[in-house]
Simulated scan of single mutants.
Amino acid sequence: MATGRTDPERRDRIIDAALDLIVDEGVAGMSHRKVAARAGVPLGSMTYHFAGMDDLLQEAFTRFSNTIIAVFEDRLGAATTPDEARTAVADLVHHLSGGNQRELILTHELYTLAARKPAYRELTR
């Protein structure tokens, strides 16, 4: 694993680790130390790449939201008639309700955070 300035993927690993930690411990269980350990990076990398925990959470939930948007676009984008749209929505609801536990947990954590902190509400729209 590359270190220091020769590690261009460090920031992405931190974001991935943050999302994994949210799934395992929730937003309330987050700390710079835990995320750094999970990402395999020095603790100082946290403040180098992110202004604070809110900055990291914004980045992590933005990445997650973009994956959900892609699912919606993939499932709904091809519908050209009302009947196709109804079928696509039903398929999407079925997909999401039977979806993976990770996405479900991240969705609930994001909505809980957005309920408490207005800065996250835009991500839920």
Rank of each mutant, 00 (worst) to 15 (best):
T6C: 06
L123N: 10
T62I: 01
Q58D: 13
G44P: 00
A114D: 12
G40L: 09
A79N: 10
Y48C: 02
A85E: 07
N100P: 00
A85Q: 06
A114N: 09
A28T: 14
A18P: 01
R13S: 11
M53W: 01
P8L: 14
E25M: 10
H32C: 09
P82E: 14
E25Q: 15
G52Y: 09
M30Y: 07
E59K: 10
G52H: 05
M53R: 09
L123G: 10
T67C: 00
L96V: 14
R121P: 01
R38F: 03
I14L: 05
F64I: 00
A85K: 07
G4F: 02
D24G: 10
Y120K: 04
R116G: 10
A37K: 11
L76S: 03
A37E: 15
R33S: 15
A88V: 04
A2I: 09
A70T: 06
L110M: 10
L43R: 11
T80N: 05
E73A: 07
A17W: 06
G4M: 06
E122P: 00
S97W: 08
A78V: 00
A85Y: 05
R102S: 12
D55G: 07
F50I: 08
L43C: 02
E25W: 04
A70F: 00
K117W: 04
H49L: 00
A88R: 07
A79D: 09
L123V: 08
V93I: 10
A85D: 06
R5T: 14
E103H: 13
I15N: 03
R121L: 15
I22Y: 03
V27M: 03
L96M: 13
E84A: 14
A36V: 02
R121T: 14
